[in-house]
Computed example of a mutant assay.
Amino acid sequence: MTIALHITTRASRRLLMACFCMLALVHMSIWLLLSYKAMSLVFICLIVASSFCCSYCLVFRYWQGIQQIRQLSISAMGEMILYLLPQPEMQKDMQMREVRALKGLNVRLSHKSRIWPYFLSIFLLDEAGKEHKLLILPDSLSPAAFRALRVSLIWISQHQTM
């Protein structure tokens, strides 16, 4: 078995749903706090509804901004190259040859990375010392690619020399 692989991550819908659920809990607590005040029910509903709509729009826009498509290539020796691809809207404007001509960054696995069975929080350091964060949930890749990436990262973390 080899650890060599090439993956392309997608935006995680589970992460978006988890953020929305946390926001729902926050708004339910706001509702409970405001219900003890001597305000009318209509006023409380307006406050919570407007807060709810604004925060959901902001979270969705933030999620869209951070969900950049990334490609990670791992060689059989454990060297990693990270390709930061433009957003899908920008890819439509670019020619495919320009997308393929993007240069990759030679990166190494940081000690801060966490590799769990259903969640990968990967911190990669490039040659300039800049840190690149990858948050990969199982819906970001196919099940086989997720397993292969997890195994490759475990092998790299155990055989990496600083």
Rank of each mutant, 00 (worst) to 15 (best):
S12I: 01
L16R: 05
L16Q: 04
F20N: 03
C21R: 08
L23R: 00
A24I: 04
L25V: 13
V26R: 02
H27L: 12
M28P: 00
M28D: 00
S29G: 00
S29T: 00
I30E: 01
L32T: 07
L32Y: 12
S35T: 07
V42P: 02
F43A: 11
I44K: 14
C45K: 03
C45R: 04
I47G: 01
I47L: 14
C54Q: 06
S55Y: 03
Y56T: 07
Y56K: 04
C57M: 07
F60K: 15
R61G: 12
Y62S: 11
Q64I: 04
G65E: 08
I66H: 10
Q68D: 03
Q68C: 08
I69S: 12
R70E: 01
Q71V: 08
Q71I: 07
L72I: 05
A76G: 14
G78P: 12
E79G: 07
M80A: 05
I81Y: 06
I81R: 14
Y83K: 10
L85R: 15
Q87S: 13
P88I: 05
P88A: 04
M90Q: 15
D93C: 06
M96P: 15
K103G: 05
G104I: 08
L105H: 13
N106T: 13
N106S: 12
L109G: 05
Y118G: 10
F119I: 01
L124S: 10
L124I: 06
K130S: 00
E131A: 11
K133Y: 13
I136V: 11
I136N: 00
P138S: 01
P138C: 00
D139S: 11
S140A: 10
L141H: 09
A144Y: 01
F146E: 02
F146C: 03
F146T: 05
A148F: 01
A148C: 12
L149W: 08
L149Q: 14
L149H: 14
S152C: 02
I154A: 02
W155Q: 11
